[in-house]
């Protein structure tokens, strides 16, 4: 799967949890999911579980620790998808 395709799906999933909908319009790979998009930290787990469903992957708690930005999320999914 192409990185751009993964990125689009990742952004769409995160968008459902973002409190700052305006910031979703200018998302880059450097955008911080919690700070910039105001995703509730307790909901980050739901975001990653949605990645599991969307990409048919399994993510461990330790893998999720590396996810701070949209780019981190894309990297995680890309590594799992292979």
């Amino acid at each position: 799967m192409e990185r751009s395709e993964i990125r689009d799906k990742v952004v769409k999933i995160i968008g459902a949890y973002a409190k700052d909908k305006e910031a979703m319009g200018s998302v880059t790979e450097e955008t911080n999911i919690l700070e910039d998009l105001k995703v509730n930290s307790a909901r980050l787990v739901d975001v990653i579980l949605d990645f599991e469903d969307a990409f048919d992957i399994e993510v461990e708690d330790e893998d999720a620790d590396s996810v701070n930005t949209v780019g981190d999320a894309v990297n995680l999914v890309q590594a799992k998808v292979g």
Binding site: V45, I48, L49, E52, E58, V59, E60, D61, A64
Partner: peptide, 8 residues
């Protein structure tokens, strides 16, 4: 469950 689903 396994993985993060187990923790959740």
């Amino acid at each position: 469950h396994t993985g993060m689903r187990r923790s959740r």
